[in-house]
């Protein structure tokens, strides 16, 4: 009997570190509700990762094994998870809200007649009933969510909701290898690959000037470039700008692009959708300039200017040049 199952995501037995955030989340819920946590690792072999994970404060580390789990497929993972959940009858299934989890978790839940409370940013314990908070309307509003019915309850947490280095070590987790059955896969995967290896490594930038939809046209990118040049900064963008090919994709910040933590991040005409914010919220100082005073980017900004970026940019360039002498 395991009370909480937590998913350990990996590729070829190399840990996706965000799983440590899931462990921290599961441990936190376990403490609140007096439950125990076991980690689940789907793999095609006696996963080398099991030893590393067993050092965390867990009851068990369970490797669910089948040769078809050598590479991720939604069918393979759904079959494997369905069986381990039926065997262990957990109260909660906790996962990090990654692209892979988005792909298979709702399927597993649906098979068991459940759904996922997805992409949560926090939870509260209200007399033994958990209330989860999700961000909705592209980050403009929060929603407190409860879930009805019987266990298991499926929850995924957004990147950064818990800190991986808060995952508690110690304990003496047993490791178990369990064979699971996987039916025919209806999809055949090829090897994952990295497209045109990012020629610009923004993770090392000290200052980043980033543009969003508010820049309006490709021609206006030059204005932001002038500001970046004056500051000695790198130019970056939110997804719509790279989708429109106004800047190359290796300049994209956010969940599908790079995750950065520069000393200063200046967001020009970026509203601050969650997918962008997860890529830059750890910047030392965040500056937001946006004409919409309700834009969610202001919630995480240290300095905010409500107004037209086209009025602000030339003044910034001029004043910075003056300040630098």
């Amino acid at each position: 009997m395991s009370d909480i199952l937590v998913f350990i995501e990996h590729k070829n037995c190399v840990l996706n570190k965000i799983s440590l955030e899931a462990i921290a989340a599961a441990q936190s819920i376990a403490k609140d509700l007096g439950l125990k946590v076991s980690a689940i690792i789907p793999c095609d072999k006696d996963c080398a990762l099991a030893e590393e994970i067993s050092r965390y404060n867990l009851e068990k580390v369970i490797v669910i094994k089948n040769e078809k789990l050598n590479i991720y497929t939604p069918d393979g993972y759904a079959d494997a998870w369905e069986q381990i959940i039926k065997q262990t009858n957990p109260q909660y299934v906790v996962m990090a809200h990654t692209y892979q989890v988005r792909d298979f978790a709702p399927k597993v839940a649906a098979r068991l007649g459940k759904e996922v409370v997805g992409d949560c940013i926090r939870y509260q314990n209200s007399n033994g009933k958990l209330v989860f908070t999700r961000r909705i309307f592209l980050g403009k509003l929060d929603a407190d969510v409860t879930i009805e019915g019987d266990a298991p309850y499926f929850v995924t947490f957004q990147s950064g909701a818990f800190r991986g280095d808060n995952a508690e070590k110690g304990g003496n987790a047993q490791t178990e290898m369990t064979n699971v059955e996987v039916k025919d896969l209806r999809m055949s995967p090829e090897e994952p690959f990295q497209e045109a290896k990012a020629s610009v490594d923004l993770t090392k930038s000290g200052i980043i000037v980033a543009v969003g939809r508010g820049i309006k046209s490709q021609e206006n990118i030059a204005l932001a470039q002038q500001l970046a040049d004056a500051l000695g900064a790198d130019l970056a963008a939110s997804r719509p700008i790279c989708d429109a090919e106004w800047l190359p994709i290796d300049r994209q910040i956010g969940s599908s692009g790079q995750t950065v933590a520069p000393k200063v991040y200046i967001a020009l005409g970026i509203s601050g959708a969650i997918q962008h914010i997860v890529g830059m919220k750890n910047a030392g100082t965040i500056v937001a300039i946006n004409k919409d005073k309700e834009a969610p980017i202001f919630d995480i900004a240290d300095y905010g200017i409500v107004g037209d970026i086209f009025e602000a940019m030339p003044v910034l360039v001029e004043e910075i040049k003056k300040a630098k002498g």
């Binding site: 980050g139 403009k140 407190d144 969510v145 879930i147 969610p296 200017i305 107004g307 910034l316």
Partner: peptide, 29 residues
């Protein structure tokens, strides 16, 4: 086993934001 929205609200601010320029972008710059 449905999930229910109990309450929606404006996100709690995690940061103290200094607003500059008072609506005037040039002054803010």
């Amino acid at each position: 086993s449905a999930q229910h929205i109990e309450k929606v609200y404006l996100p709690l601010k995690t940061k103290q934001t200094q607003m500059l320029g008072d609506g005037d972008a040039k002054k803010g710059a």
